[in-house]
């Protein structure tokens, strides 16, 4: 059976070089606008950046995928169409899309362009996946982070299409692309603007020795002295339900599925994805290197080394997330 493909994030050309040098098989990235789901200030690629980065990556036999995975705005489809056109023109190896209308456009306009279905489309069952494959010729599905490994195995046994799963990084406890929590608090959403809990609406305020984070004026968390902090992402906040303040949705924690490589392999997963286009190149280099080492060991039948990524993770804790049933 084929080796796992390692799919790595890049928010800047420097991060792309770091990912390539650390052993990525493919790098995914987005343009510098609302067409991608990591539309953060100072991040992402101009057309020229993309051209240069593709040249750099291809020279080293590394693929480049362009995420155009927000939902185009009604009455304003042109930026999304241009993004697909430019990715095709600059010879990106695939585009990662979520919107039905945009998939339709890409399939009709660029029949030679390889289409991947973004996690933002949240295709969680065989029927949905078949639809994307048959209607648009989608070649690979990035699975939503709501499925257990046995469910992934069943899916792969049923539908003939490549699957890609997240193995490391930030973890959405909600079905991706179906969440308006951010826009409820701030007016800006992952689906529309490509941002979740945007920094523009985040404030940190010291409260004595504690640190409070607010989003759109709502208090998302209060960290005690010395307590590890997390992103001020709404679903990773601490809230009061039944008179108890707790991490109601998800603790500030990072996904790390390195221990599940054998199970993911038996489940028929084709590619493993690292989250974090918004993270710095130091993070990307360290995580990609660790996974490269682990995948090489796994492919050679050697024991997968224990690699310490603790320093990189949010809240200082790691989880296998939805891949194991207990998470639910």
């Amino acid at each position: 059976m084929d080796r796992f493909e390692l799919i790595c994030p890049a928010g800047t050309p420097a991060a792309l070089r770091a990912a390539v040098e650390a052993g990525a098989d493919a790098v995914y990235l987005g343009f510098r606008d609302e067409t991608n789901a990591r539309n953060f200030p100072g991040l992402n690629f101009t057309r020229q950046d993309l051209a240069e980065s593709i040249a750099f990556a291809h020279a080293r036999r590394v693929q480049v995928f362009v995420a155009i995975n927000t939902y185009p705005e009604a009455g304003n489809l042109a930026p999304w169409h241009r993004a697909v056109d430019d990715a095709a023109r600059l010879k990106a190896d695939a585009v990662i899309l979520a919107d039905l209308g945009l998939l339709d456009y890409a399939a009709r306009t660029h029949p030679e362009l390889r289409l991947h279905l973004s996690v933002q489309a949240s295709a969680a069952n065989a029927e949905a996946i078949r639809l994307y494959r048959d209607a648009f010729g989608v070649r690979r599905i990035v699975l939503p982070r709501v499925l257990t490994v046995p469910e992934i195995a069943k899916l792969n046994a049923e539908v003939d299409v490549e699957t890609e799963v997240f193995v490391f990084g930030g973890l959405c406890p909600m079905a991706e692309g179906r969440c308006s929590l951010s826009s409820y608090a701030t007016g800006l959403s992952p689906n529309k603007q490509g941002v979740c809990s945007p920094a523009s609406h985040v404030r940190y305020e010291p409260r004595g020795k504690a640190l409070a984070s607010t989003l759109g004026g709502f208090t998302i968390n209060v960290f005690g002295e010395g307590e590890n902090a997390g992103y001020p992402t709404l679903c990773k906040g601490r809230f009061v339900a039944r008179d108890t303040a707790a991490y109601l949705f998800e603790e500030p924690t990072s996904l790390n599925a390195m221990d599940l490589l054998p199970e993911l392999k038996s489940a028929g997963v084709r590619a493993l994805k690292i989250e974090g286009r918004q993270r710095g190149k130091a993070y990307i280099g360290a995580v990609v290197r660790a996974y490269r080492e682990a995948l090489d060991a796994f492919a050679a039948g050697r024991p997968v080394p224990r690699i310490d990524l603790q320093a990189m993770v949010e809240g200082g804790t790691q989880t296998t997330g939805a891949y194991t049933r207990a998470w639910r």
Partner: peptide
């Protein structure tokens, strides 16, 4: 307004 859906049950969790 419905805002999100999850595989995890937050009622049970709470």
């Amino acid at each position: 307004a419905p805002l999100a859906i999850s595989a995890r049950c937050y009622h049970a969790r709470a």
